[in-house]
Each structure stands twice: as structure tokens, then as C-alpha cells.
Design a protein around this nucleic acid. Structure first.
Lengths: 335, 335
DNA sequence: TTGTAGGCGTTATCAG
DNA sequence: CTGATAACGCCTACAA
């Protein structure tokens, strides 16, 4: 009914359970003759390991940490919520996740959080600073598997990245901006931080497509909103006071301020933002925001857990698994 | 280390393992006094069932069927591929999936496929015919959990639907069509079958938004391409011969024909199609197709399996779980 | 290098 | 109604 077991393999290979186990988990200390017999038996019977039983017997409990910025609004709040949602389901599969909140741009705090970590694997969303990269190396050296989440650290020793292709996200934003805007005019780009890698990649993608395909639009120099609603509002107000804006691409957080500013502007610019939060969702509904590019936080959490499990199991992890789809929301498909 | 077990619960409740089990799985035959004691002990210890051990002990193997149209091109091919991809991983979790291919519009064949099914749950993608709905009822009556996949059968006894909100998909297509097209003109809608529910819902959503928001565009009567490349090519050729088309919304399969016809047309219409296949991907690249609305087949398979498992476990299933995101692909974000 | 025996947490069987 | 006790498939001492 439920397939061949180690017993079946042992019997057809004419060896003991222990020998089968040693071969299966290549622990060595097995004569090549016995090994061959076992392998043949595995092939012959079509044996596949029952992970549930294996984990049960070795009392395996996966301990995964998520080191992510805290905050009760915007994207990070969605991420926290997704983590909490998955938690109960994961407990049943013997996966314990611990969430370690940090502050968004506080490198020292993030390093500290990574310092005393006690787990099998960790998913981290942190700044791209040398101190952090060192910490990643240290973790790896001490046997912890590391994946980056949302913001990659490609220079580091991390083993996988779970998140968007941010260049593609920026390119996509540009494409829709260009196609929505027939006439010429000036477009404002607001990043959260110009030194953050993901924001930079989005900017780069956006700029490139604008140059390649939509030269009737003029890009203003990118400004830095610090993921803060007040700053964003001020920046938009200043920019639109100086000249009429036909488009705004907002890359980071602070969309509350953006919405306020756009509502006050004389002519409504085409507005594209990132992350489907209550604010951006409302913006879509009332027409302030035209498009929301979203990375599904639930999908990100699920993918991260899956990869961390595969890594701790010693399985191959394809880069494909970590790719989070870019969700595009408009007024007509808000979920 | 790995939390309290039934033993702990039994000890603190001062009853035997068997009694704890009876309460936990509410099998009845337990005095209310004992039941109360057990429940108190569960609460006190914070016990959570170890699913791995439970499944091991009862030698649980989940047997799920997928009854889906076969075909080696287009969407159904992607679906098959996704199923095959998931299979090996699922085997490790004691989930055996069997794929039962049918023919797209062959109701009798679909009924036959549903007839002799031997599994715990089934995901079906089939026509919306009374015979099929009856078969669903019969399956449910015989204890098989049923979910619909991609094409819903809302009138039936199915317990969940995994797939797109097709009305929203149509609305989204209309929104982008409208925004991409500044000038007025005529728009052609091609469905696979006008009697298929999902296609109809997409049409409905598309029509409605066009009326509500983009009255400068004129909708031609919807035509039926039978998910066949040749028919689609002919239909598009005929329509654009009669008048200049500014837009095409293709709802079903047969995109190869669509691409050929559009490439021959004098003026390139804004073209929006469904499902990211090799053909539509190529169409995006070479500019023949402007937008592809895609439902992620991998996500659909994963969601379907998750729901089938929850159903057979007797867990609550929220309608949320089955909602597949609408992925929007453009030239700049093909993956 | 190989094998045996016991246990992981849960469920099922069979007496009391 | 209740409680021992033996599986389930795998892993891990420990012994040979």
C-alpha cells in the first residue's frame, strides 16, 4: 500500500537494516560489495525514503529564524503578518520559526541580531553593509544556512535569494508608465534610499527602459524619501510646484504621503508604487494610484521556508525556487 | 525540545494514552469527566499533534487525482508539466498524485474518468455540464473530496475552487486595453468557447469595464475560436479585413494563429492574451503581443494539493487559499 | 565492516 | 467506558 520500506530493501539486498541506512545516508564504513547490493535493491524495489518517519525517529525539529525589520505599517507589516500566518501550519510539520525584529537602517542592530542566532537556517532582510556580509560568512562557517529575503546580498556567502528581480520590476514600471502616457512631460522617481540595493536596481531598470523606448518622457533626478510619508509628501509637493508632473514612480515606502500630495496636485500624474498595503489598495480604489507592483509576502515566506528546509536537508536548491513573481495590481484586480 | 506529547497530556490528565487519543480525535465513548480532564491537560501543556507521527502510525498515504485535459501545447501542457514537477516532492510527503487525462470538450469521456476514481480527493478541470455536476455529487456522496481547478462548477457539490477570478481577469484586460489605446477604434474579443464558464466570465468583465470607462472603444461581437490556432487565425484575418482593429483580447488557446494573423495585419492592434506559453512568451518578445494574463500553474497545483490535504484532514478551508493570483506579463518582465 | 534492539509520537487492537 | 501493548518506518546506540 505505502511502498517499499527499508526492510524490503534490506531483505532483497540480503543485508541488515543498519547497512541499508548507512548506504542511504552515505555514512561510509560499508564494503563496496554491500553498497552495490543495497543500491541495486533500492533501484529494484523503487524505494523512496519516508521523510516523516525519518524525522520522527531522529526527533528532527527544524529551527528557522527570520531576521526582518519591524514596523506596523507598509510592507514589513505585511511580511510579519505572513510569517505569523504560516507559523501554525509549520509547527505541525516540525518547523519552528522565530522572528527577530530589527530596525530598518540600523546596521549595528542587525549585526547584533545575527550574532547570537541559534537555528538551522536564517532568512535575513538587511542592509547591504560589509559588517553584515561578514556576519553572513560567520554564520555559514558555523554551519547555519543563510538565505537573503527581499533585499539580496549577492556579494555575501548567502546560499539563496528569495525575492523579486528588482531590475525587471523597474523595467515593468517603466513600460506601463510609458504606455499610459502618450504625451510628453516629466516623471519623478522617489526611492526610499539611494544606497539600498533593491531600490537602486528598480531605478536602474526604470531608467533604462525609459531611455530605450519612451524618450518623449523626461526623467527628473531621483530623490530619496527615506521610506517616510512626510518626506515623500514634501518631495512630491516641491516637485509638482516647480513644474507639472505627468508621472511618479515611487519605489519605497511612505505611500500615505504620496497619496496626500497627489490628491492636492492640480493635474493627476500617472502614479506607480510598490507593495500592496492598505494605503496603496485604497489609492487604487480612489484612482490616486494607477498601478501597484507587489511582491507576494506569503509566497516569499513559503519559498524561504522551502529553501531553508531543502538546504538543511542537503538537497539541491535551484535559483528558480526563490524567484517571487511580480504581481501587478490595478483598480480592476485588487484582491 | 520538541514540545509536549500525548504522554505528557495523559500524565497530567491522569488518564491513559488511549483515552487521550479518543478525545483528541473525538471518537466518543469517553466520560465527560475524562474528556474535560484531557482538554484541560491539552490546554495546560500546549500540546500540538505531531502530524508526521500520526500519519506514520496510521500508515496514511494521501491519494489525490487530477482529472485534467491532456494536450502537448498551451496551457494544459503547462499544467501537466507543473503536476509532474510537484510529484516527486509530494511523494516524500506521502502524497501520491495520479493524473487522469481527458479530452477538452468530451463530456462523456470526462464523466467516465470521474466514474471509476479511487482516491481521497480529486481536482477536476472539466466542462460545466449537468452530467459532470451529477458525477461530482456522486463522488462527494461516496466520501471523495472534490475541488474544481481553473474552471469552476459553482452549481455543483465541489467544496473548493482553485483558480482565477475570471471576471477580474477580464476587467483587468479591459483596463489595460483602454489605457494603452488613446484613440478610438474597434476591439475584437475571441473566446475559445462561448459556452465555457471561465471564458464567459472573462468576456463579461471585459465588456463591463469597457462600457464603464472606455467608451471611445467599440466592441465587436465576441467570436468563438474553439481554442484552435487555424480558426483563430481565420477569425482575426476576417475581422481585420473588414475594418482596422485597434485591439484584440484573446481569451482561450490558439495563440499561434493569433500571432500569425497579427503579424500579417497592416496596423498592429494592442493584443492581450491569456496564459504564458512558449508562443505567447515569444509574442511578447517580438512585440506581437502586448500583455499576457497568466495563471501560475505551479501555484495552482500547490494550492490544490494543499486544499485537498486540508479537506481530507477535516480542516477548515478558506476560500482565500484557492485564489490564484493573476500574473501580468509584459515584454519587460517575462520570466 | 556488520547486525541487533530499542525508541521517536501517534494510532489501533484487544482485553478488562 | 478505560487501559495496556504492539505496530508504523526510520535512525542510532551498542555489540559482535
Amino acid at each position: 500500500m505505502s511502498g517499499p520500506t527499508v526492510h524490503d530493501v534490506a531483505r532483497t539486498a540480503q543485508v541488515s537494516l543498519a547497512t541499508v541506512d548507512r548506504v542511504l545516508n552515505n555514512r561510509g564504513g560499508v564494503s563496496s560489495k554491500a553498497e552495490a547490493k543495497v543500491k541495486a535493491a533500492v533501484a529494484q524495489t523503487g524505494y523512496v525514503r519516508n521523510m516523516a518517519a525519518a524525522n520522527l525517529s531522529r526527533r528532527r525539529v527544524y529551527r528557522f529564524c527570520f531576521v526582518v525589520p519591524s514596523g506596523d505599517t507598509g510592507f514589513v507589516a505585511l511580511l510579519q503578518a505572513a510569517l505569523e500566518r504560516e507559523r501554525s501550519r509549520l509547527v505541525e510539520e516540525q518547523i519552528l520559526i522565530q522572528i527577530i525584529p530589527t530596525h530598518a537602517f540600523d546596521v549595528a542592530g542587525q549585526v547584533a541580531a545575527l550574532r547570537d542566532l541559534d537555528c538551522d537556517a536564517v532568512a535575513i532582510m538587511a542592509s547591504e553593509a560589509p559588517e553584515i556580509q561578514e556576519e553572513v560568512s560567520r554564520l555559514r562557517a558555523s554551519g547555519v544556512r543563510v538565505v537573503t529575503l527581499v533585499a539580496d546580498l549577492p556579494q555575501s556567502d548567502r546560499e539563496a535569494y528569495v525575492g523579486l528581480d528588482n531590475v525587471a520590476a523597474g523595467r515593468t514600471a517603466a513600460e506601463f508608465m510609458g504606455r499610459f502616457l502618450g504625451a510628453s512631460g516629466e516623471v519623478l522617481m522617489i526611492a526610499g534610499s539611494l544606497s539600498s540595493r533593491d531600490h537602486n536596481e528598480r531605478l536602474m531598470g526604470f531608467r533604462r527602459v525609459m531611455q530605450e523606448r519612451f524618450q518623449h518622457l523626461t526623467l527628473l533626478p531621483a530623490v530619496e524619501g527615506n521610506d517616510d510619508a512626510q518626506s515623500v509628501e514634501r518631495l512630491v509637493a516641491e516637485a509638482s510646484a516647480a513644474r507639472p508632473l505627468v508621472g511618479i514612480y515611487a519605489i519605497g515606502a511612505g505611500n500615505k504621503g504620496l497619496v496626500r500630495a497627489v490628491q492636492k496636485a492640480d493635474a493627476k500624474p500617472v502614479t506607480i508604487v510598490h507593495e500592496l498595503t492598505p494605503t496603496s489598495r485604497q489609492g487604487l480604489r480612489d484612482g490616486t494610484i494607477d498601478l501597484v507592483l507587489d511582491q507576494d509576502t506569503s509566497a516569499a515566506v513559503v519559498a524561504a521556508v522551502r529553501i531553508m528546509r531543502d538546504l538543511t536537508e542537503g538537497r539541491e536548491v535551484s535559483a528558480e525556487t526563490g524567484k517571487i513573481r511580480l504581481n501587478i495590481f490595478s483598480r480592476e484586480n485588487i484582491q
